[in-house]
Design a protein around this nucleic acid. Sequence first.
DNA 1: GCCAACGTTGGC
DNA 2: GCCAACGTTGGC
Length: 151
Amino acid sequence: MAYWLMKSEPDVYTIDELEESGRDIWRKPIRNYQVRNMLRDDMKVGDEIFFYRSNCKEIGISGIAKVASGPYPDPTQFDNKSHYFDEKSSKDNPRWISVDVEFVRKLSRTITLAEIRAEKSLEGMILTRKGNRLSVTPVNEKHWHKILSLE
DNA sequence: GCCAACGTTGGC
DNA sequence: GCCAACGTTGGC
């Protein structure tokens, strides 16, 4: 059982949308090989996820979700009208995957990136590492509980 | 809107 | 296989 942090911009996908559907494909398409490999090889059904809001006014963790399926081909890669269309991908040999996620709960407030940075015991999180650009990162158990204790 | 930092592409 | 040019991410 592992923990993850997954980023999405509010204009693409939010915790509120996941709450509404209850369970859904992770709607922020992954287009990074390192992230794809983590989803494919390391992410397991039942793993817990921090839902992180990036590229917006209030940056931080807004809720909790759970991995609800194994990896499967991300449909947007085949959709030539989608911004995420990938002409080099085929149904026989899909390049990009996603997983289903299940709503767990919203946090009572957003735990901001600034707070996370300020917290000494959260040093070493991949999230706050200089130059990190991964939209999905593993979170260790200590960090997971520490962040929840800030809520 | 700016820009640092990184990933990807493609010519050679 | 190198690397310059370009694209993207995402905080500020």
